[in-house]
Amino acid sequence: MHEFLEAFRFIAHNGAIAGAPGLPTLTHLALETLRVAAIGLAISVVIAVPLGVWLGHIHRGSFAAINLGNIGRALPSLAVLAIGDAILGLGLTVVELALVVLAVPPIVTNAYLGVDGVDRDLVDAARGMGMSGFEIIRRVELPLAVGPLFAGIRTAAVFVVSTTTIASLAGFSGSLGDVIANETSYHFSGVLGAAICVAALALAVEGVLTLVQRVLTPRGLRLAEHERSGPLDPEAAIA
């Protein structure tokens, strides 16, 4: 476990290495990773959520929405970055493009499944009470689809953080992946330390999003969830 001790020493020094001044600090690289990832995720959410919600609302395009998810998973981050590099040359734009290509499919698929899966009777009741299509989306479908919708965004967030670090392998500099890709300068202890930081960062992102999801999930739904997992209510408690 000597390597881990060394790695934690590297983290404690915030990425500084004796005899190699001028290296970026781990804090700086972590924030850069978050910045690059956040931009990609934000663009993806803006594109994918409306698309998925709309497809789910009109109950169309299930084939496209679901297969988009499969294709998205089939795209290796490194291959997407490599092909983007070959065609357009590597830079922040290509990295963000790759992030969006990878993050849009899971968000679309999950938003679609979430909204499409909302109980049709509820939508019927909402329509029968005179809600417009937009009101149905805002007041009924979106609150009820928060779970799947956020599951998609979480999956995408993990993809995006992971891919941002992989971008360093393709030669893009400005993330914690830089340390991992540059063992010559940082030695294995630095690589391991950066790997620990990357893992912690991804888990933190996942944790924060899980918390946000919990806050956004309507209380009534959590209760309903509870009831569903319990024994069936035999309507015994009437009046």
Partner: peptide
């Protein structure tokens, strides 16, 4: 309606 359709949220 028969299913009542109360909004669970």
């Amino acid at each position: 309606i028969q299913q009542i359709g109360l909004f669970p949220h």
